[in-house]
Design a protein around this nucleic acid. Sequence first.
DNA 1: ACCCGATTTTGATTCAGATCAACCCGAAGA
DNA 2: TCTTCGGGTTGATCTGAATCAAAATCGGGT
Lengths: 250, 250
Amino acid sequence: MLPESFLPTNLDVAQLRSSCATCSLRELCLPVGLNDQEVDILGEVVSYKRKVKRGSYLHRTGTKFQALYAVKSGFLKTCILEEDGRQQVTGFHMTGELLGLDAISTELHTCDAIALEDSEVCEIPFAKLEEISRTIPSLMHHFHKIMSREIVRDHGVMMLLGSMKAEERLATFLLNMSRRLAIRGYSESNFNLRMTREEIGSYLGLKLETVSRAFSKLQDEAVISVNNKHIQIHDLQRLKTKMGNSSCAT
Amino acid sequence: MLPESFLPTNLDVAQLRSSCATCSLRELCLPVGLNDQEVDILGEVVSYKRKVKRGSYLHRTGTKFQALYAVKSGFLKTCILEEDGRQQVTGFHMTGELLGLDAISTELHTCDAIALEDSEVCEIPFAKLEEISRTIPSLMHHFHKIMSREIVRDHGVMMLLGSMKAEERLATFLLNMSRRLAIRGYSESNFNLRMTREEIGSYLGLKLETVSRAFSKLQDEAVISVNNKHIQIHDLQRLKTKMGNSSCAT
DNA sequence: ACCCGATTTTGATTCAGATCAACCCGAAGA
DNA sequence: TCTTCGGGTTGATCTGAATCAAAATCGGGT
C-alpha cells in the first residue's frame, strides 16, 4: 500500500462546502488556523474570483505567472506537453486545492490548467501572498506545508508510475478520488469521474484501452460497477488490497 | 525533448565550489541575492555541519523533521519504500541541493536519504529558517522558488515515467547528470556515476537488466562509452535526440 | 426524435521490457 | 594467492501492456 501521505488532500478542513454564496475565504485551503483579523488581511488579497468554462484554460504553459489559484468549485486537470505531441496529465484538482505552485520557480507557468467542468477559482496574487505571510507566520508555515504536500504527492505518483501494474494503478487512483471526495462531504463509494479514459491513462502512464480493460476487470470481480463515468465501489476493502500486492493472488 | 525546466538544477549560481574550507554559506543554494548582513543572519542558522558516511542514513522515513539539509559535498539518494518491499528512488542529490522539503508537510520524513559516497551536509533548522525569512523577503522568495523547482522536477520525472521508452529514459537521465555536473564545474562528458544499475533502474522505472542493456545499446551506437560506473559521452547532440523522439528513426 | 462525432469497450496481435539464468569481473578479506 | 561476493553483462523466454481494428454507446445539437 502507498503511504497515507500519498493521498493529495491539499486541505486540512473538512467543512469546505459552506453555504455562503460569496467568495468566502473560509472555503479555501489557506486560512487554516488564522484568527478573524488575519483572515481579513488575507481576504483583501484573494478578492478576485474567476470563472473557467468547461474545456477552457485557466492558464497556459509559458504564460507569465502572477497568481496562484484556489479552486472554489469545479474540477480541473493540469498537464504538460512535449513538442512531439506527447502529453502528461500531472494532476486533477478539486475544491480547495491550490494551482500554480510549479510556476513560482521560473515566473512562467510550466503546465496547462484546463477545466474539466465549469469551475470557479480565486486568484491569489503571489507577490501579495508573500508580503502578508511575513506578518502572519502561521499563514507562511501553512503555505510551506501545502507546497511540501504537493512534493509528497508527486513522489507517490512516481512510485505508482515506477513500480505498479495497470490494475494497481487504477485501484490507487480510484481510492484517491474516493478519499478526496469523502473529505469534501461526498460519497466515497458512489461518484462520477470528470475525466476521460484517455486522461486517466495519461495520468497513470497507461493507454486508454488498458484503463478500460482494468475497469472491466474490477467490475467482473464485483469490486466496482462502472457505467461510463459513473463509478460505484462495492468493496472498498478489496480495492485497497488491489493497490499494493502484485505478488499476492490475483 | 523535456522542457529545460525539467533539469533539477537546484541552484542558481555557477561558482559553487569555493576554495573556502569552512562551511561557507556562499556555497549553498539559499543565499542567492542576499547582502552581506543578511548572509550573516542566515549564517547563524546553518552553522551545524554533519558528515554522512557512504551507505549510512542522513534521515529515515518516519523520523521527526527538524531541519532541512543542504548538501555541501558528496552524493545522496532519497527513496521511499513500501511494506511489500518495493522501493522507489525519488531523487539523486548533489552539492548545493536541498533535502527534506517533503517532510515539511507532516513534520515527519517521508523518505530515506542515504549517502552514496561520503558526504557533508549543513543542517538548517526549519523553524529558524521560517523565522528569519520573515525579515529577509528575498530569502523567503528564493526558498519558495526552490520548492517550486522541486515540484517542476517531479513533474518532469512523471512525464519520463509515464511516457518514455527505456532508452529515452536513460538518455534523459544521463543528460541530466551531465548538465548538473557541468554547472558545478565538472566535465559534462566524462564522469563517474555513484549509483548502481539497480538504483538507476528504480529511479527510471526499469529493471537493472534493462538499464544495462540500454547502456550497451548506446555504447554500440558510439554515443557513449561505458566502463562500469565510468561514463564518457561522445556525442552529446545525438544523445539529446534520443531523449525525445521514439517516433523518429532509431 | 434523430444524427454525428466523441468516447468507450472488446478482441486479436505484437512487442518492449520483465523474468529467469548463466557468466564475468574486480575489490575486499582470509 | 585464493576465495568470495556484490555488481554488471548478456542470452533466452515469457508476459503485460501497446497497438491495431471494429463495434457499441453516449451526449449534444438540430
